[in-house]
């Protein structure tokens, strides 16, 4: 019996704590987090310096609503992005797709880095010749 009383008090105590606990704004916080992380990679077309997540433009709101509904209906992130790309073009993606036209963008820096490294090593070798150098203290 005593155990039950303790449990009862514990439950009501919890209830008291939670009585004023603020509720998440979104009905489904998990889906909302997914929406947020996806829309952060998407560009708002109206105020073009903002992501879809940050923009307050009416179109951004409509699109967030649309994405929320699609996610709710079980669409994957990729399907949602494809839906938007079909309407607004690659422009909506802050992560440019890997295509022939963006090959240079994605690989250029690494190729540049490698060329630089090879060039440096070759130059250093050529300069040093066969000489043996003495280490120099500070």
């Amino acid at each position: 019996m005593k155990r039950w009383i303790v449990l009862f008090y514990m439950l009501t105590a919890c209830a008291l704590v939670f009585a004023g606990e603020a509720k998440p704004l979104a009905e489904d916080p998990v889906l909302e987090a997914r929406l947020k992380s996806l829309s952060q990679e998407l560009r708002c077309l109206v105020c073009q310096n903002q992501t879809l997540a940050d923009s307050n433009a009416p179109l951004a709101e409509d699109l967030r609503k649309e994405i929320r509904e699609q996610m709710h209906a079980g669409k994957s992130d990729k399907e949602v992005v494809d839906y938007l790309v079909a309407r607004y073009g690659d422009f909506v993606m802050y992560r440019p797709p890997m295509k022939r036209s963006t090959m240079l963008l994605w690989l250029g820096p690494f190729v540049g880095f490698l060329i630089g490294a090879v060039f440096l090593i070759r130059t250093l070798k050529k300069r040093a010749g066969n000489e043996d150098f003495e280490a120099e203290e500070e």
């Binding site: 990679e41 560009r43 992501t51 073009g89 690659d90 992560r95 440019p96 240079l104 963008l105």
Partner: peptide, 26 residues
């Protein structure tokens, strides 16, 4: 890489290869 990413949208547009955005994920 920063320069390429910054100028690439302009480069694509100038060549008529379409509009893209290069943002934080890149």
């Amino acid at each position: 890489s920063v320069m390429l990413g910054t100028l690439y949208p302009l480069l694509m547009d100038a060549l008529g290869a379409g509009k893209i955005s290069v943002g934080p994920p890149y």
